[in-house]
Nucleic acid binder design. Structure first.
Length: 260
DNA sequence: ATGCCTAAGCCCCTTAGA
């Protein structure tokens, strides 16, 4: 079975790309980020017609995450992360999905970008990371197959960017960001793409600017973290690169794992 | 030092992204 994460960068503008990706790649579970849409205005009819159940945690204009599951509605477990009541960003949605191989816990994650740095946006990123780590511990303690997938807005190390120098001052590569990501993994999570591609990459994001896509100047920021019970079943991981090159594509490519 | 490019809200510029 296949679990994918895809930052769509606007689900209304991206609907044709999203529908053809679901139709062509048939992921069993799809975790979406950056809907840029409220729950009420999400175009869910066409998605359901392709056989996917879905739950949404949207927001007007920006942010917004979703969990899609082929063949049935995901059962919501948590909407938003605890720990900061004044945080109104829609960045976290956790659910249990039924699969042919049994139930699976999944979370769709859109971690704050954190630029410009230093400043309140970078501070928010690090606080949000702490809140995610606290929740991840709770999930891990259940000792069940679980996948935390999404746009983490972290380039884990220098192997994961086309240019260390170009990204040196960016929030995505700072020691604080990388340290938070590393501490999360140290709880016992497996970075699935890293484990299957130990030499670095593959890229999951290419900026719209600077001729980035044609020149293949990208980096790896969309991650799928697996609990030990899920990591035992990992057989493959990759990026649907080809979808990034299509007309009016997202700046992210769908990123996926295959589980036994 | 800044814009490059894109989406969305609100009205054709601003905010946000990474």
């Amino acid at each position: 079975m296949r679990v994918a994460t895809y930052n769509v960068n606007g689900i209304k503008a991206r609907l044709p790309r999203l529908l053809e990706w679901l139709d062509e790649e048939r992921p069993d579970v799809a975790l979406l980020q950056e809907l840029k849409s409220t729950d009420e205005t999400v175009p869910d009819r066409e998605i359901r017609e392709l056989g996917y159940g879905a739950i949404w945690h949207g927001q007007k204009g920006f942010n917004g995450v979703a969990v899609l599951a082929r063949g049935g509605d995901p059962a919501e477990r948590l909407r938003g992360l605890p720990g900061e009541p004044e945080d109104d960003h829609s960045r976290y949605l956790e659910a249990e999905v039924a699969t042919a191989d049994g139930p699976l816990i999944v979370a769709s994650i859109y971690l704050p970008n954190g630029n410009p740095r230093p400043g309140p946006k970078f501070d928010y990123k690090l606080r949000w990371f702490d809140r995610l780590a606290a929740r991840a511990r709770v999930i891990l303690a259940e000792e069940r197959p679980a996948v935390l997938g999404g746009d983490y807005n972290v380039i884990p190390d220098d192997r994961d960017t086309f240019s260390v120098r170009a990204m040196a001052d960016d929030a995505l590569t700072q020691p604080e960001s990388r340290g938070a990501y590393r501490r999360l993994l140290a709880q016992g999570w497996t970075d699935a793409l890293r484990s299957r591609h130990p030499r670095g990459g593959p890229w999951t994001f290419w900026d719209y600017q600077n001729n980035s896509w044609p020149a293949d100047r990208g980096f790896r920021i969309d991650h799928l973290l697996l609990s030990p019970q899920a990591a035992d079943r990992l057989v493959d991981a990759g990026v649907d690169r080809e979808h990034r090159g299509r007309e009016r594509a997202s700046d992210h490519a769908p990123t996926w794992i295959g589980l036994r």
